[in-house]
């Protein structure tokens, strides 16, 4: 495939990052030069992909893949070390009755629980499971920059492998694109560790607050250009969270961004994905939009909590032929 999109998106790709020469106006011109999104057509395409019928061997593959892509999440004010340890045990061994069940990709917690999660995963013999920490005054993003950076720094120091930051939606919606761009860059800088490694940066847009598909596409390009390793739909804390059309649009963005720059960025829908059926629809969307390069936990994640048990019940159904029930999966 040639990189025709590169020409179209070239302006964004070479977006000036020097604060002295860049401006909101310059970013606005570039982001608003992206092709528009027709909502009806986008939603129709997402719905059509949702009608694929995934059966037998394909379903078995998809269920295991989906489990392996979960960022098993607890983001509650009532979180305790005990809750986080239980979640880590679940993530390391999702189905005690079937050891062939894949482990989840990551445990996603608030930054003050990152160290607890890290220890618990090691204790459960699953150090390969990542610890993802939300940061930057999650979920509202309403704090001074210094606070957001400190939040990030703490999480990285506590051992977080991944940082899920939120953008400042107020800044984005009022056209202060440069501020959003620079915030992402600065948070990205805080992801670096002394050992030269760096925590992967997921950038949460809160699609439900961005309100339009055009905004989601612009936020995607802004975040990718600023260095995001992943782009993520939602915090899970507002009314509208991950939706198939919003995620499809972000998949198109990472596809086009790679075609333009050669750099691959991951996608993470989060919030509201509760059933195996829904998860499989997302995997179909990945498969038919960006292809198998993204069909791994390195490039696609589900931010979810209750999804895991439904996947496990479906997995049990496939192996036993009987419908399972909630008493046959563990609740943590």
């Amino acid at each position: 495939m040639t990189h025709g999109y590169a020409r179209r998106y070239g302006a964004v790709v070479t977006m000036p990052t020097d604060a002295d020469t860049s401006s909101d106006a310059a970013l606005r011109r570039q982001l608003h030069g992206l092709p528009g999104v027709d909502a009806v057509g986008l939603e129709a395409r997402a719905a059509a992909l949702g009608t694929r019928s995934i059966k037998t061997t394909a379903k078995a593959y998809a269920l295991d893949l989906a489990i392996s892509m979960i960022d098993l999440t607890t983001l509650e004010g009532a979180d305790t070390p005990g809750k986080v340890r239980a979640l880590c045990a679940k993530g390391a061994n999702p189905d005690p009755t079937d050891r062939s069940t894949p482990k989840v990709a990551a445990i996603c917690v608030y930054s003050d629980m990152a160290a607890t999660a890290k220890e618990a995963l090691v204790a459960n013999g699953a150090p390969e499971i990542k610890v993802a920490s939300v940061a930057t005054a999650f979920p509202s993003g309403r704090a001074a920059m210094a606070v957001k950076l400190a939040d990030t720094r703490d999480a990285v120091a506590a051992g977080a492998d991944e940082i899920d930051m939120v953008i400042d939606r107020g800044a984005f919606l009022s056209g202060r694109y440069l501020q959003v761009f620079e915030e992402i860059q600065q948070v990205k800088a805080e992801c670096a560790r002394p050992d030269g490694e760096e925590a992967h940066l997921k950038v949460i847009f809160e699609n439900g607050e961005l309100a339009t598909y055009d905004n989601i596409r612009r936020a995607s390009w802004l975040a990718m250009s600023a260095g995001a390793d992943f782009i993520k739909t939602s915090t899970g804390k507002v009314t509208v969270n991950a939706t198939p059309p919003g995620t499809l649009l972000m998949l198109e963005a990472v596809r086009d961004f790679r075609a333009a720059t050669g750099r691959q960025v991951g996608v993470k829908p989060a919030g509201g994905i509760r059933t195996a059926k829904d998860a499989i629809k997302y995997l179909v969307m990945v498969n038919e939009t960006v292809g198998e390069d993204w069909l791994s936990r390195d490039w696609f994640r589900f931010g979810a909590s209750s999804l895991l048990n439904d996947l496990l019940m479906q997995r049990q159904k496939l192996s036993t032929g009987r419908y399972s029930g909630p008493d046959y999966v563990t609740v943590d």
């Binding site: 694929r52 019928s53 995934i54 061997t57 998809a62 893949l65």
Partner: peptide, 9 residues
Amino acid sequence: PAAFAYAPA
């Protein structure tokens, strides 16, 4: 061969 090959439905 596709990684995610849809079984006949």
